[in-house]
């Protein structure tokens, strides 16, 4: 299976404070990966390195077999930031406007959106079950609905990789489950590669295909059995992951 993300001996530090040292892993097409670890372990930093926002102090990152320094096809990568739209709740924009904004690579510079672009935005909203809210201001939507809008914004661009940073922050428990089900469905039906940073491993483990754990500057891949045993130990009762 082809590799979409390849990380080799990656090191990064903030000043003299090392975050991780010589970590390596690959993500294949169609993987649904959860990246877990305690606060400050560098999970979000790892995403920012993959997005080319930070420069590693050592090692290599390759996206679609291309060195990240030469990589230009960013629209192939969709990104859902931590807290999603929560910092923009007062932004006077409708769900449809926010989703359509991500169609830039298909519309082009100095050009105006056409009927086909508006239809694409509507289809993306339909995919996440938010078509009825297309004309609503984002500030009028709940945290879970805002996250669905964020997913639609990414999906409208037909990405090959979706990176999510704590997508369930500020979302109620019932909505969390439906968000995970939605992600698992996209992964299953379209082969979309998903890399998701999360704290919520007890629920996420039921949906993901691989679990990477960042801890004390190194990265290890955990089997579901290892996660089950760790969670059972932590919660002092047996926990079963599907």
């Amino acid at each position: 299976m082809s590799k979409t993300i390849e990380v080799e001996d990656l090191s990064f530090s903030y000043g003299n404070e090392p975050v991780f040292t010589q970590i390596s892993f690959s993500v294949h097409k169609g993987d649904f990966v959860a990246v877990i670890g305690s606060n400050g372990a560098g999970k979000s930093t790892l995403l920012r390195l993959i997005l080319g926002e930070l420069t590693p102090s050592g090692g290599k990152i390759r996206l679609f077999d291309q060195d990240i320094r030469q990589f230009e096809n960013w629209p192939k990568i969709g990104y859902v930031p931590q807290a999603g739209l929560q910092s923009s709740v007062n932004f006077p924009a409708t769900a449809e406007e926010i989703v359509a904004a991500n169609l830039f690579s298909q519309i082009g510079l100095f050009r105006f959106p056409q009927k086909e672009h508006r239809e694409k935005s509507r289809s993306a909203l339909e995919l996440v079950g938010m078509e009825a809210y297309s004309k609503r201001l984002i500030g009028e939507l709940s945290g879970g609905q805002q996250q669905r809008i964020m997913l639609a914004r990414v999906l409208v661009n037909d990405p090959e990789i979706m990176l999510l940073d704590e997508p369930t922050t500020g979302v109620d428990a019932r909505t969390v489950q439906s968000l995970y089900e939605l992600l698992a469905q996209f992964n299953r039906d379209t082969g979309l590669t998903i890399v998701m940073v999360t704290h919520d491993i007890s629920r996420a483990a039921n949906y993901v295909s691989r679990i990477l754990c960042l801890e004390e500057g190194s990265l290890v891949e955990l089997s579901k059995a290892q996660v089950e045993s760790e969670l059972s130990h932590r919660h002092k009762h047996p926990i079963k992951i599907n």
Partner: peptide, 16 residues
């Protein structure tokens, strides 16, 4: 559309 997206979310605008 470019100014709108940059004002909303500069990082995602760059990725787009």
């Amino acid at each position: 559309k470019e100014l709108f997206y940059i004002a909303l979310d500069e990082r995602s605008a760059r990725l787009a």
